Computed example of a mutant assay.
Amino acid sequence: MTYSIQIVIDSEDPHTQAGWWAETLDWRVEPTDQDFIDKMLAEGYAQQSDLIEHNGIRVWSTGEAICRPDEDGKTGRQRILFVKVPEPKTVKNRTHLDIRLDGDDKDAVRTALEKRGARFLYQGNEGPHIWYTMTDPEGNEFCVS
């Protein structure tokens, strides 16, 4: 039996990070099921303190997920979950995301990402393969290739 995985990224502000990464990858923030929230509140599994309002919608305060638009709601979908942690990022990532541009101009993508809060760290290469190592607005490393 094979298993699917979900990538989880610790965040100071998971909702803002989810929005930033959804825009970066052309994915979508998964919608929060308001009826499910109401049910969890009514049954005592959740409290109002478990929720915040983000972009005018009640969401779970602890995290937000993104997925590919064509996989929204599907079991086994590719998914990145951003979860709230109390401490800021302090050391280098042991794991990072590689954004594979599939022919888009690396320099134009880099410039666009920098305008949205990413930071360029350095250019790397192996033979003719060149990539940019950058950080997202919370300092998490990722590569553009």
Rank of each mutant, 00 (worst) to 15 (best):
K39P: 03
L41F: 07
L41Y: 07
A42F: 04
A42G: 15
E43V: 13
E43C: 07
E43I: 09
E43R: 15
E43T: 14
G44T: 07
Y45P: 01
Y45H: 14
Q47Y: 03
Q48C: 01
S49D: 13
S49Y: 01
D50L: 04
L51F: 08
L51I: 05
I52H: 02
I52P: 02
E53C: 05
H54W: 14
H54G: 01
G56A: 05
I57M: 07
V59N: 01
W60T: 02
W60E: 02
S61L: 08
T62F: 12
G63E: 09
G63I: 06
G63P: 10
A65M: 10
I66D: 05
I66R: 08
I66H: 05
C67V: 06
C67H: 01
C67F: 00
R68C: 11
D70H: 08
D70R: 05
D70C: 03
E71P: 10
D72F: 00
D72A: 01
G73N: 01
K74T: 00
K74M: 08
T75S: 12
G76A: 14
G76F: 13
G76E: 12
L81S: 15
F82M: 09
F82L: 05
V83W: 04
K84D: 00
V85G: 06
E87Y: 02
E87N: 05
T90M: 11
T90W: 05
V91M: 11
K92I: 00
K92L: 10
T95R: 15
T95Y: 11
L97F: 14
L97D: 06
D98P: 10
D98V: 06
D98L: 10
R100S: 14
L101T: 02
G103L: 09
D105A: 09
D105P: 06
K106Q: 09
K106D: 04
D107V: 06
D107S: 12
D107N: 12
D107F: 12
V109I: 11
R110Q: 09
A112S: 10
E114N: 07
E114G: 01
R116S: 10
R116M: 07
G117R: 10
F120S: 04
Y122V: 09
Y122E: 11
Q123D: 14
Q123C: 11
G124K: 12
